[in-house]
Nucleic acid binder design. Structure first.
Length: 644
RNA sequence: GCUGUUGUAGCUCAGGGGUAGAGCACUUCCUUGGUAAGGAAGAGGUCGAGAGUUCAAUUCUCUUCAACAGCUCCA
């Protein structure tokens, strides 16, 4: 008996039945066999040591395959656990999966906390055990046997996991003296691990439930070559330099004050320019797309939010009502703009001919985020949404939704955001109590979102339980410099608030009908968008956004008058910048302007005064030669063209 | 909110039971310099806040506030 094995290049080879992955690798080449970590068999990743019993399509996985890395890191989690058990006997283990960069393991250290040198000790132990090249041995065990093993070991977490597994599906993996409950697969042996680093240690609730005990989550990463670890750590350092919190401070874009309150950003003058440029960009795009700007107050009476359902849903977890001298009168800081916009819609009767009505507002909202959640500008307690609500007829929903997708993509393209994920955020079918509204309307809304996304050929991922309480969403997720994912643009279909606010329009049949609402914010919030933008361009903003576009740098005081006149001419041409007339050498002025990431430096000395020119130096690119001022302004305008 | 770590000058950080230090930034003076840091002097801090231990606390203990990492949450 033999099996037909189809390789990734389409070629088919015959092997004896029970052939092992490693043997296939060897038959291809010894070199491949040496670096093989696992094998993909008909889409399933397996140990190289497991026999293949039927005709299959396979792929030998190495470090160059992402699933090869995943397997490597998962096996490294076991190696970590082995090291931990050797150093700290009695440690109990939760789960230890591979993640995007490395792995983590949730452990119960019985009250112990790690110090710096503990981490170094663990790393050393991991490498010591790796050197033994211990084989990861797979063993199928009965539920009873598995239970017995971990009962004896006294690991209640593993027992809980086993309890949820069906008998006959349980496997153990053993390497060296360490045995773990694990479905696998694993790399052949520990010897592949040549570098290990414990990255950080944090708390994590057992099984992600905040009512459970908090375990210690240890994050680590390993590599098959020491040099790759160095490179990884170097990249991490580089990423940290792009952190918007660091750049925001250095470039004087925004700040926080304990006295003002946590999570309440203070926009500095330079950050405000950035923000206002973005607002202007969006305003123009929205006027073109048929939106009407509106303005509403920062507070609204409690009754408004009782009607919308926000009060019931978030009342206890939000800023508490503001009381007036009048007995029983309460106002809430607005957490959303939609209720206000509903009332604008309602101020007069609407005809089907008027729809869609698109009301847009840069609305500042306040949400009482948990203290541990606050994070620079990406998660704050007061922020401004580029919000709008589209009130339309049911037959217009899809068309309107698609138009909004186009607007979001226009924004992302204009700012060079290419690596976004379009996420269809659905409700959690297991927990419908979290949401308001009727099933069939939810189903309809979810369907419409997916159809609209398909129409624009967006690659989407659907995630359950991520919907807003009043409706499903299409969220545009973008990663920050440190790999954390944030929701920027969002589009939501809502059948519920129109119901709650009793919104109506008169149809062609002269009957009253209920409109549908689309909530949408292409930036999401200005704060978060700016944060991600800062990290995306590392503080080197596109010219049309840069707070300071030019710096005029006289070579000595003698040329200050000419430099000043140059600066005034540029200012008159709406070019933003600084005039550095400090008593410093030109090298110093250049350095300071470079550090501030100012796109253009205009250097003037004796030569430029005589020729009535300016010497141009571009940020990061050095001397560009000199030109007349009018010529510079003209070139600048071309280069500065905003995407609107 | 939870677990852990951290909190010293505007910024980045050192120090440590006897009321504090560096570099950069800032001010003044010297210097008038051609493409990434010229020189000198000066000023600047209740050592996050509150309480306790002590003859003495910025240092030790507790509480609290904030930041950071992760978890949980995110209209």
């Amino acid at each position: 008996m033999s099996v037909k094995i189809t390789l990734p290049d389409g070629s088919v080879r015959e092997y004896p039945q029970q052939v092992k992955g490693i043997e296939i690798a060897q038959s291809i080449s010894e070199g491949l066999a040496r670096v093989s970590l696992a094998i993909e068999v008909n889409g399933e990743i397996r140990d190289l040591s497991r026999p293949i019993t039927e005709d299959s399509s396979i792929k030998i996985l190495t470090w160059n395959d992402s699933s090869g890395k995943t397997t490597f890191w998962h096996s490294s989690a076991h190696l970590f656990a082995e090291a931990l058990e050797a150093l700290y006997p009695g440690t109990k283990f939760g789960i230890g999966p591979a993640i995007e960069n490395g792995f983590y393991y949730d452990v119960d250290l019985g009250g112990k906390t790690f110090a710096e040198d503990d981490l170094a000790k663990i790393e050393a132990k991991m490498l010591e055990l790796a050197k033994k090249s211990n084989v990861y041995e797979r063993r199928e065990v009965s539920k009873a046997e598995a239970t017995e093993y971990f009962t004896k070991k006294g690991d209640e977490y593993k027992l809980e996991l086993i309890n949820d597994l069906a008998d006959g599906t349980i496997t153990f993996y053993t390497q060296g003296d360490f045995t773990d409950l694990c479905r696998g697969p694993h790399i052949p042996h520990t010897g592949f691990v040549k570098a290990a680093k414990i990255l950080n240690v944090a708390g994590a609730y057992w099984r992600g439930n905040e009512n459970n005990k908090m375990l210690t989550r240890v994050y680590g990463i390993t590599f098959p070559k020491a040099k790759e670890l160095e490179e990884f750590l170097h990249l991490q350092e580089e990423a940290k330099k792009r952190d918007h919190r660091k750049l925001g401070k250095e470039l004087e874009l925004f700040t926080f004050s304990e006295k003002v309150g946590m999570g309440l950003p203070l926009w500095l003058p330079k950050g405000t320019i950035l923000r206002e440029r973005l607002e202007q960009f969006m305003r123009k795009a929205q006027v073109r797309a048929g939106y009407d700007p509106v303005v509403t107050p920062h507070i609204g009476s409690k009754q408004l939010y009782v009607t919308s359902g926000h009060y019931e849903k978030y009342g206890k977890d939000s800023f508490q009502p503001i009381h007036t001298p009048d007995e029983g009168e309460e106002f809430l800081l607005k957490p959303m703009n939609c209720p206000h916009h509903c009332e604008i819609y309602k101020h007069k009767p609407r005809s089907y001919r008027d729809l869609p009505v698109r009301l847009a507002e840069f609305g500042t909202v306040y949400r009482y985020e948990q203290s541990g959640e606050l994070h620079g500008l990406t998660r704050v307690r007061g922020f401004t949404q580029d919000d709008a609500h589209i009130f339309c007829r049911p037959d217009q929903v899809k068309e309107e939704f698609v138009k909004v997708i186009d607007l979001v993509l226009h924004v992302f393209n204009s700012l060079g955001f290419e690596n976004y994920t379009a996420q269809v955020s659905l409700r959690d079918p297991a927990n419908k109590a979290k949401y308001i509204g009727e099933d069939h309307l939810w189903d309809k809304a979810e369907r419409e979102i997916q159809e609209a996304a398909d129409e624009r050929k967006l690659t989407t991922v659907a995630v359950q339980g991520e919907a807003a309480f009043y409706g499903p969403k299409l969220d545009f997720m973008v990663k920050d410099a440190l790999g954390r994912s944030w929701q920027l643009g969002t589009i939501q279909v809502d059948y519920n608030l129109p119901e709650r606010f009793e919104l109506e329009y008169v149809g062609a049949d002269n009957q009253k009908h209920r409109p549908v609402m689309i909530h949408r914010a292409p930036f999401g919030s200005l704060e978060r968008f700016v944060a991600v933008l800062i990290e995306h361009c590392a503080g080197n903003f596109p010219l049309w956004l840069a707070p300071d576009q030019i710096a005029v740098l006289p070579i000595s005081e003698k040329f200050n008058d000419y430099a000043q006149s140059v600066y005034e001419r540029l200012k008159a041409a709406d070019i933003r910048g600084v005039f550095d007339d400090r008593d410093e050498k030109i090298g110093r002025k250049i350095r300071d302007a470079e550090v501030k990431k100012i796109p253009f430096m205009l250097i003037v000395g004796e030569k430029e005064v005589n020729e009535q020119k300016v010497a141009i130096r571009k940020h990061g690119q050095g001397d560009q030669g000199s030109v007349g001022i009018d010529e510079f302004v003209e070139n600048f305008r071309k280069e500065c063209a905003a995407p609107f």
